[in-house]
Every structure is written in structure tokens, then in C-alpha cells.
Design a protein around this nucleic acid. Sequence first.
RNA 1: UGGUCUAUGGUGUAACUGGCAACACGUCUGUUUUUGGUACAGAAGAGUCUAGGUUCGAGCCCUAGUAGACCAACCA
Length: 554
Amino acid sequence: MEQTKSLNFIEEKIKADLAAGKFGGAIHTRFPPEPNGYLHIGHAKAICLNFGIAKANGGVCNLRFDDTNPTKEETKYVDAIKQDVKWLGFNWGDKEYYTSDYFETLYGYAVKLIEKGLAYVDHQTPEQIAEQKGTPTRPGENSPFRNRTIEENLELFAKMRNGDFEEGVCILRAKIDMENDNMLLRDPLIYRIKKVTHHRTGDDWCIYPIYDFAHGQSDSIEGITHSLCSLEFEVHRPLYNWFIENLEIFPSEQTEFARLNLSYTILSKRKLLELVEGNHVTGWDDPRMPTLSGLRRRGYSPESILALCEEIGVLKRNGLTDLSLLEHHLKTHLNKVAERRMAVLNPLKVTITNYPEGKSELLDAVNNPENELAGKRQVPFSREIYIEQDDFMEDAPRKFYRLSQGREVRLRYAYYITCNEIIKDTEGNITELLCTYDPETKGGQSPDGRKVKATMHWVSVNDSIDADVRLYDRLFSSETPDKTEEGGHFTDNLNPKSVEIISAKLEPELKTAIIGATYQFERLGYFCKDQDSSSSNLVFNRTVALRDSWAKKK
RNA sequence: UGGUCUAUGGUGUAACUGGCAACACGUCUGUUUUUGGUACAGAAGAGUCUAGGUUCGAGCCCUAGUAGACCAACCA
């Protein structure tokens, strides 16, 4: 008997709706990004939810661009969003939807509201309107233009559309209740004048609907049954329903859930834009960004993001998800699929004094111990190699069982070596190690069965290739970058050491890596070839480091 | 001096009202290992925000309090 997975509250609701025969048994969702920025991992949660629910119930999920504010929206964002949704593995059929496709219908809805005496043109300044709105604890007051006649309103609204008024001169408002506890019901603004070119409709319009007058209606037009959005829209729901009822259109239903919060991360498009424009990062796809394009470039797999979304579930409670949870899913996935390679980040030269000069040999190395099908490759070995500086200690404590003078270790897939002599420069820095190898231990095992405690990675000096490796760390040093000292700014919490670029030595096989390919550099972490690479200059991003229990012991 | 929503180990989630509150991450111990990775075995860690109430019985229901989030953009 398989244990049935517990349903989240939205799945429960859908199950109940289905059982009640609501919407004729149809399930239709939508993912409605505004094309004013790039998608981030918080959006991934909404994407998984909406596309996932539709799929699980034999329904459809529309991809809809909520483009009602031409001053912020651009086609380049539309393209980036489509690419990211696709990357996560979802598709939306052969067409995408745009709120801007409904401008004419929306205009008609506004006219209908006016005709029903439920909307009016207000000729006050934005300041006056704001003042009259009151506060959460103080009721608002009626506008002096609230009682204009239907005819007058109709004529004025037509003039608005016609471009007869300048921006800010007047605005269309729904006539609801200026004293309502819910501020959104205090005669909300629904159509404003913006003499701005729209990324899709060009100069066809100079008036644009505001979110509340566009979103629910768009849902309704598309026959969306379950409109899922984040918690901050909870207070909008009465208004969402008010429009649908008074317009007498298809009754889409809004349900809210908590958005994702990730530690050491900021998930606000506005703030992400600020990081980009303030050059705190190199762009929306900077590998330190929580954007899907940034994560992709960093080397994250869609599988790991999907796994996180699956695990965090869908609740009405907002919390703070630990970044390590995402990293855990990443490592789990990459461990299974990433091929292994050897790379030395901080090289220390080792000369094997008893290895013939000029000799070189190819040694077999396993590509992925987790997957036999990944096969083997050959790694060149020679008299001079590089090892990791951290793998040698002159005065080694008991717990340190890597290389030290007089100690023997195994070079992975190669030989056992013993360190005999340390060479230093005039300042006392170790510049080279002189070692001897045991020819009997080729491949990494000794015929006499003698044990060595450590196995180390290495790279042949003459065969190695150079690469810039970007060692990324978290972008913010605070778990909650938004929390700042009073008068502070979230950028104050930026981690000054979020990236360190070093030059590393890689095994030659890595020459053939393609951009975007992720490897495990043995004993170090997962690394992904960056798009900045050229034929003369390789660049790798550290996606995430391997667990390092030695570092903890220290 | 308003309204709406929420409250389970450090974190993320479970628990048909009824057997000592379960799982994952993280932490700590061991075992295996040609990655101090992985895998495996085990441990510590909450008594479910507080106070009342309903009930034979409450993490689940009710009331109040407390704490947090959201609401006063011609943003979405």
C-alpha cells in the first residue's frame, strides 16, 4: 500500500471543488508574470504550483504576461521569462497570453461599470485623492466628483481615451465605499492616463487599466478557475470579486499562498533591478543572483529547483527557507549526474624525483562513480605535477592525514608518493616539494596491501590547462538582507567577498567542455563552464562546494 | 488607534480529533570508501506561542491575548 502524499491546502480545495462539480470539473490555472524583470526562484514556486496543479488535474495552465504598465515593461523581459519557464521544464502550448490583448474588452468593462453608475471620472490631483483616501485607521471622504452623471462620465472617459487630457489630470475610479475598512474598496483607481508607448500595443492607447481592473478580468476572460497568487493580494480579493460580480463575467476564484523567502537572498524584482542598475552584480544573470538565469549560469539544475519547490510545499504561513536546503537538493542531483574531473585551485608544484624525466603516461580515471555508464577517461601523468596547497602541511597535526614530510599518500588513479624534501623561497614560503613514487602502485593500489590514509587530486604540470575559476559565495552576508539598521539600505548587507577569481590548473580533458556543462572537481565542488569562456581563456564558476568535514574539524 | 491572514524541533514540512508529535535539511557519533565527497548506521534536539474554554480526550474546534506578515503607489 503506497502512502498517499498529503495534499496542500490548495490541492484540498481543488479536490473539494472537483467533488462538488464546480466549474464543470475544469481546472484552469495561469502563471501571470509582469515583464518588467527576470524571473527568480520565488517565481519558480508559483510556476511549479500553477503548471503542476493543472497537469495533475488534466487541466491547462496559461502563461500570461501582465503588461498593463508600459513604463516598466519590455519585450526583452518577455523573451527572458519564456526561456526560464521552458528551462524549468514547463510548456504552455502554442500561445502565450497578454493582458494587453484585452485592452479593448477591458475598456468596454469600464464603460459598463460607468453605465451601471459604478464608476466615475475624478478630476482631482493625485495628492488630493491620496489625502481623501484616509488611512487604515481613518476613513476616507468622498470625492467632489463622485456624483457626476453617467452621461458626463461616459463622455469624459471617452475623452480620456481620445487623449484629450494630460497625464494626471483625471482618472477613472470605481464607486464603492470610501469608509470601508479595506482601503482597496475606497473607490479604487481603475484607469489612468499614460501617454507612453506600450511594448506591444504601441501608441494605440493612452489610458491603461490598473492591476485590480485587469488581473481578475483577464482571469475571467481566459476562463481561469483557480487564480493562485501570493499572500499580499489577500486584501485585493474582495475587489477582485466585486468586479467580477458587477461585470457579471466568469467567476474565477482567487486563492493566496505564501511566497518563498530564502535566507541570504533577496527576492524582490525591484531590488534585484537595483542590484543590476547599481552594478553590484554584472547583470540579471550574474551567477550570484537568485534569478533563474543567474542560477542556471551558476550551474544549478532545474531538477534541484523543482525538488526544493516540491519540498517546501504550499502554505499560508510565511517563513524563511534555509539556502542550505536548496544546496542540498543541488548536491544530491549533481552527485548523480556530474562527471568528475581533477582540478587544482591553488597549485603547489611537486617533482617526483625518481620518475624518469621526459616520461609521460596516461592513466585510467572513472568519470562518475555513481554512474557506470559515464565510462572512463585518461589522465596524463608526468614527473612534475601540481597538488593543492591545502593538501600539504609542514607541521601536520595528528588529525591531518594528507601529505607532509616523510608521509605517503595516494595520488588518485596514479601512484603512492612520499614527500622527502621541502623547497622554500627566501621568505620561507614553500615553493616546491620533492617526492618519490612507488612504481608498484600504479593505478592507486599497492601489491603489498599497505594502506595510505589520504587520496589526493593532482594535475600534470605540462599537460594541465589554465582557467579562471570564480569562487562564489553568498551575495549577502546577512541571513535577512532586508533587515537593516534604521536608515540603512539592503545593499549595506552585500557580502564584499561574494566572488573571488583565481587561476587554476585543470586536467586537459576539460578543454572539450561545453558552456553550461557542470562537473565535479574531485574533492572540491561542482563547477560549471561559464559563457565568458573563449578559446584562449577558460572560465569556470563554482556552483557549490562539496561538504568538507576536514574544514570543520579545523 | 482599523482590517485581513498566520503561529508545530535551529530551518522546511507531516500528523483521519484519540497509542511516547513523524519526515527532510542542518548538527553531532560511528562504519565503508582510491573524493575527509557519496552511501550506511545511530544520537541529540519540539511537547505544538500564551491563557482560558468545549470534550472522556485538543497540535487540530472556540474565545481572548501575544508575536509576525500584509493593506494608505495614477506599481504588479
